[in-house]
Design a protein around this nucleic acid. Structure first.
Lengths: 239, 239
DNA sequence: CTTTGAGGAATTGTTCAACAATCCAACGAT
DNA sequence: ATCGTTGGATTGTTGAACAATTCCTCAAAG
């Protein structure tokens, strides 16, 4: 019953001479993200890029000054990022970049096992499987180009494509958040060339099983992959 | 004061392999929840209680006045509830109590299938299974007392206990959020006496299978239960 | 009679300035 | 060296302000 889009006409343009110039760029963009949302985006970017390391402290005043926004707005962005577990709030002490502890690694992989294995067992449409295949090929290409950064991205695309087969917005966002958490914490590991290259074969096998319509085998492969990956992460980062 | 580098000291403190998380989480009750948090709690309560129906609008000023807090504080509470999908923000239009559409029902059950079935297949410790059993008995008792409200609570406890077997904080919170969503939307349905009573037998069977160590059978029963429940919800609420 | 457009009220988005509460580190007294 | 005290800094919260936007009403034009 809710009509999603309402045209934004009423271009009364009572404003001064300048007029459309500045608005022209945003003319088609019906929904401009709020300032708080843009701050959150910027922080997510910096977190994903490894510019903000786990444990680092973020002070409201500094960020507000730095980004040219109000402290309250920064606060809203903090709340959003905290709800995604990328930041943690210590009451009256400040917000810090999240850092995963020993149990958290297992925790994250438990979520992934639940979501990915369950999803993959049910298979997907040919289009959805094609998306998975595309991610696999993207990874191969990145490997051939020795592009580690691209390899990491391709791997995330692969797993996101897997979950997308379930066709659930909620699962998609959960998966995105989990991947963001991992990317934040495991950023150092991504520099290791051998780190992702070993997974290329797994992804290929899983994708092949999917294309063959053997969801059961695909799910078993995925489960084995996740278990192995978890063990690897535990080995790298001190338990 | 332009502070160019915000990468604070990450050196010593955060080590605490034990876990900084538990330190924060284990902050004893000496810490009083913030005002924003209390507002969020109050709203959650009213939502769960059915005092705020889906689609209802919440105005910042009214709530601020009503609860005796500042508008900004209400805003923070809104942000938190929105991140839990209990409220939705329409930019420049206001926040509304979330209402599930056609696809959302299937979406929610997709999440539950992924989490609950996956968790139950792996079984749990005797203590964890005992918690499941306790929820089952709680339901029986409520049924005997003709306490529909209690029946609904017991059912939620049952499913929460199931997920708790995974021992994952993240899965627990995801499950809590999903259950909160359902409780909000399906509140009207909970008045139906027959609605939950039919599930008592399912819960009993699932619990029995768990106690017998037959996780596979338990998971199959759970899957069948969820599918049936989804169909029932779709039947009740217009597709 | 329907459509169009121009106010105008109401609400949100955002900023700013202030104050209380809390934490932290340095300091001083015992 | 231990323990309390004292400042300084940062967060939590408030209140008021203003621009931007939406919604509603209503009169004018077709």
């Amino acid at each position: 019953m809710t009509s999603p889009a309402r045209n934004a006409r009423s271009a009364s343009a009572p404003a001064a001479a300048g007029n459309g110039a500045s608005l022209a760029g945003a003319r088609l963009r019906v929904a401009v993200p709020s300032v708080a949302e843009r701050v959150a985006q910027e922080l997510r970017h910096q977190l994903a890029e490894g510019l903000l390391l786990p444990g680092a402290r973020l002070t409201e005043a500094a960020l507000a000054e730095d980004l040219g926004v109000s402290r309250n707005t920064v606060r809203e962005a903090f709340a959003e990022l905290a709800s995604e577990r990328l930041l943690v709030r210590h009451p009256n002490r400040g917000v810090f970049v999240a850092s995963l502890g020993a149990g958290d690694i297992h925790d994250v992989y438990t979520v992934r096992r639940a979501i990915e294995v369950s999803t993959i067992r049910n298979g997907g449409t040919t289009e959805q499987i094609a998306a998975v295949r595309a991610a696999v090929e993207e990874g191969k290409k990145a490997a051939a180009a020795n592009d580690n950064e691209g390899l990491g991205s391709a791997n995330q695309h692969f797993h996101r494509a897997i979950v997308a087969m379930a066709g659930s917005r909620r699962l998609d966002t959960i998966m995105s958040q989990v991947l963001a958490e991992m990317r934040l914490f495991f950023h150092k590991a991504t520099v290791d060339a051998e780190f992702y290259s070993g997974y290329l074969k797994d992804n290929e096998q899983i994708c092949a099983a999917l294309e063959a319509g053997d969801g059961e085998r695909a799910s078993e492969l995925m489960l084995a992959y996740l278990d192995r990956s978890e063990a690897q992460q535990v080995a790298i980062h001190g338990v």
